[in-house]
Amino acid sequence: MLEINHISKTFNPGTVNEKTALSGLTLRLDEGEFVTIVGSNGAGKSTLFNAIAGDFYVDEGSITLAGEDLTYLPAYRRSRRMGRLFQDPMRGTAPHMTIEENLALAYLRTAKQQRAFFSRVSRRDKEFFREQLSRLDMGLEDRMHQPVGLLSGGQRQALTLLMATMVPPRLLLLDEHTAALDPGTADKVLRLTREIVSESGITCLMITHNMKNALELGSRTLMMDGGRIVLDIGGTERQGLTVDDLLARFRAGAGKDLDNDRILLS
């Protein structure tokens, strides 16, 4: 499904600020896999997502999604096949546009709509949006004509999740998407994520600093350090693994303790 072959990226090469963010990283995901990623500060987790989404082009290596070479495609072309959520709930929605207009934009991703520049939001689309919103169970279906800027962070993040998955993407990238939410809301958004992802069988990569979530969710856990994947645990090996086991395995793999000031060990 997703094949990442030996990608490397160095920022500010040749200057004092030179930083190797990714070094020869290789990763292979099967269709429908839900993979969690943990790692120390500056391990390159978000950089990996930026590379996949096309915020920059990698220096070396290649990225393929469902048989299509993405390596040199610009970000907006890649997003046709990809959904992405950031930690900051403000980044995924347009605040001065209504909920309905935001959903209409996200709906553009379907191949059918791609060239219909002058088409307007039809009644059938509206009905579909309302139906989709009601599953969030936040009462947003009755606020379709309000600007998104009036919603809370949790509501905006739930809406962004819906926008990213309404047309099931080939790949969903979740970059600590519940980290900025209060615990109750975070749980709700996480539950929604799990539901939606398993329902549509979406291939998903999720960065988290919550070690418990990392082991509970999905079917496979990666640990990153220094721009590489130092640990890749899946299948039966992962069952019954505790957070302490994971930390011990990290120490063995990376040769040092996991160093992340935001990590939650509970």
């Binding site: 907006y76 995924g92 546009m97 209409a104 934009l105 088409s119 926008m163």
Partner: peptide, 28 residues
């Protein structure tokens, strides 16, 4: 009328949140 079409919505979103536009497969 134009600003209510899909192209018009894309233009409005470009001024509102460019990150989001890129993530919606629209070329800013």
């Amino acid at each position: 009328l134009f600003l209510g079409t899909r192209l018009g919505l894309s233009i409005r979103a470009t001024g509102d949140n460019r990150d989001m536009v890129r993530a919606s497969s629209i070329n800013p």
